[in-house]
């Protein structure tokens, strides 16, 4: 099953719409609630990151019986030092993003924490690519 969602940079009113849709789909598929929470928290963090830092982005979701794969691609400034961005507490968020309740530097570490497999790559001046894989079976 494949789904695709577009995300607009700076649009905090709609930030979370894609994650909300994915949560509804996973509920319909009777995925365990604790696994749904890990998936949608990771996805929501990623979606907010696109809204907070990029100009636009696309979220692609691939679901099969075993696992869900989330691919987040954005067009944006990119991340110069991924190691630094992965450190809890490091953030380059603007005051507007902080007013929305984000920008504490917990997003990327929290995405990794909620994933079974996580990868990130980025090119400065172009954008950032995230892959989040979560197994759907309770182990």
């Amino acid at each position: 099953m494949n789904f695709e969602f577009k995300v607009l940079g700076g649009d905090f009113v709609r930030a979370g719409n894609a994650s909300s849709q994915v949560k509804k789909i996973l509920k319909q598929l009777n995925v365990d609630a604790s696994i749904i929470k890990r998936i949608v928290v990771a996805l929501y963090e990623g979606e907010v990151n696109i809204v907070a830092h990029a100009y636009s982005g696309v979220i692609k979701v691939n679901i099969d019986t075993e696992r869900i794969l989330l691919m987040l691609d954005d067009s944006g400034p990119g991340i110069p030092d991924i190691g630094l961005a992965m450190q809890p507490g490091f953030s380059t968020a603007s005051p507007i993003v902080r007013e929305m309740g984000f920008g504490a530097g917990m997003g990327l570490p929290n995405i990794k924490d909620n994933s079974d497999e996580f990868s990130i790559s980025s090119e400065v001046g172009k954008g950032t690519h995230l892959e989040i894989l979560v197994n759907l079976k309770v182990t």
């Binding site: 905090f12 930030a15 979370g16 928290v41 309740g101 929290n110 924490d113």
Partner: peptide, 25 residues
């Protein structure tokens, strides 16, 4: 909300002064 999203507990109530749509999200 960045801190709230790190919590794993069930049956949790959030106390906040952040009255915007992202608090509900």
């Amino acid at each position: 909300m960045s801190d709230v999203l790190t919590l794993k507990n069930e049956n949790l109530v959030l106390i906040t002064g952040l009255a915007n749509i992202q608090a509900v999200r």
